[in-house]
Computed example of a mutant assay.
Amino acid sequence: MPSYIEEIINNGLASSGSTTDSFTGFMNSSRYWKLDKQYLASVAEKIRSSGHMFEKIESIDVLYSCLNGLAVAASITKSELLADELLILTRVYRREFLKECKLQELVFIGVLASGSFSSITLWCKYLGQYLSELTYLDLDYEEQQNLYYLIKSICNLEPRLFTTISKAYVLIEEQCR
């Protein structure tokens, strides 16, 4: 990684507060250079120390871009630690996503972040938990149907996911009838 890029990443992670801009250098760099565990630990710590909240979010699209970028970074770097922090971050911002009718984007973030798990068992556990939590949200009928069909599609692609989501899947299936 070029030194000037490393400086941008370090400045973002060392800045006070936790804005979406703090993570931009890290997210973009994860696609091009191998980042060591120091960066991953720093990002996870910055998210944790901010109380899993960003300062000054301009719009839901900016929030989605940041969460999506962090999910991609977690997947590319195979950072289970970052995926776990992202799970908590999405819990905090679910209401904002649902107000803007962006349930599909919320599911997509979880699917991307689950790519950080190289074991199928851990992948199923993470994504099963992520998707199960979404099924227990106060969703209107149309959103429940959309979520049901998204989960059903994912489970059809990887049937082993049913082992970790079966209870929530049956409940949402019943609600959609």
Results as ranks from 00 to 15, higher is better:
residue 66 C to G: 04
residue 80 E to H: 09
residue 83 A to L: 12
residue 84 D to S: 13
residue 16 S to E: 12
residue 132 S to Y: 06
residue 93 Y to M: 04
residue 6 E to S: 09
residue 130 Y to G: 06
residue 9 I to W: 05
residue 32 Y to P: 02
residue 115 G to L: 03
residue 129 Q to N: 11
residue 59 S to D: 13
residue 17 G to M: 04
residue 46 K to I: 06
residue 45 E to D: 11
residue 49 S to V: 07
residue 41 A to V: 10
residue 132 S to D: 07
residue 109 I to C: 05
residue 165 I to K: 12
residue 9 I to V: 14
residue 118 S to K: 14
residue 79 S to W: 01
residue 61 D to V: 00
residue 96 E to T: 08
residue 77 T to K: 01
residue 60 I to K: 10
residue 121 T to D: 14
residue 15 S to A: 15
residue 34 K to W: 02
residue 48 R to I: 05
residue 9 I to N: 07
residue 3 S to C: 05
residue 125 K to L: 13
residue 50 S to W: 04
residue 71 A to W: 03
residue 55 E to A: 11
residue 135 T to H: 03
residue 62 V to R: 08
residue 10 N to P: 01
residue 167 K to L: 15
residue 51 G to T: 04
residue 69 G to P: 03
residue 113 A to R: 11
residue 62 V to I: 09
residue 125 K to I: 08
residue 160 R to M: 10
residue 164 T to P: 01
residue 87 L to G: 09
residue 49 S to D: 14
residue 74 A to M: 00
residue 171 L to K: 13
residue 20 T to Y: 03
residue 97 F to L: 05
residue 134 L to A: 03
residue 161 L to E: 03
residue 174 E to F: 11
residue 38 Q to N: 15
residue 94 R to V: 15
residue 29 S to N: 08
residue 151 I to T: 08
residue 21 D to N: 09
residue 88 I to H: 00
residue 140 D to L: 06
residue 28 N to M: 05
residue 175 Q to K: 14
residue 128 G to T: 09
residue 21 D to S: 10
residue 102 K to F: 01
residue 161 L to G: 05
residue 173 E to D: 04
residue 106 L to Q: 07
residue 121 T to K: 15
residue 148 Y to M: 14
residue 177 R to E: 11
residue 50 S to H: 04
residue 27 M to E: 00
residue 98 L to M: 07
residue 22 S to Y: 05
residue 11 N to P: 01
residue 113 A to M: 08
residue 86 L to M: 02
residue 49 S to A: 12
residue 174 E to Y: 10
residue 10 N to I: 05
residue 7 E to L: 13
residue 156 N to I: 07
residue 77 T to D: 03
residue 148 Y to S: 05
residue 91 R to Q: 10
residue 43 V to M: 02
residue 8 I to L: 11
residue 7 E to W: 07
residue 175 Q to M: 11
residue 67 L to F: 02
residue 52 H to P: 03
residue 94 R to L: 05
residue 177 R to T: 01
residue 4 Y to W: 14
residue 152 K to T: 08
residue 167 K to P: 01
residue 174 E to L: 12
residue 28 N to G: 02
residue 133 E to H: 08
residue 154 I to T: 07
residue 130 Y to K: 06
residue 73 A to Y: 04
residue 125 K to F: 10
residue 144 Q to C: 14
residue 109 I to L: 03
residue 70 L to C: 03
residue 83 A to D: 05
residue 161 L to P: 01
residue 13 L to E: 06
residue 165 I to H: 11
residue 52 H to T: 10
residue 86 L to A: 02
residue 1 M to A: 15
residue 142 E to M: 09
residue 157 L to T: 15
residue 122 L to M: 13
residue 118 S to Y: 07
residue 102 K to L: 15
residue 125 K to S: 14
residue 42 S to G: 06
residue 54 F to Q: 05
residue 17 G to T: 03
residue 162 F to C: 09
residue 151 I to K: 00
residue 106 L to T: 07
residue 96 E to C: 01
residue 99 K to Q: 10
residue 113 A to W: 07
residue 141 Y to T: 11
residue 46 K to G: 00
residue 3 S to P: 00
residue 93 Y to F: 04
residue 105 E to S: 13
residue 81 L to R: 12
residue 138 D to S: 12
residue 56 K to G: 08
residue 8 I to H: 01
residue 73 A to I: 04
residue 102 K to D: 03
residue 125 K to P: 00
residue 35 L to Y: 01
residue 120 I to G: 05
residue 143 E to M: 13
residue 74 A to L: 01
residue 45 E to Q: 13
residue 177 R to L: 09
residue 115 G to M: 02
residue 62 V to C: 02
residue 114 S to G: 10
residue 176 C to D: 02
residue 29 S to L: 07
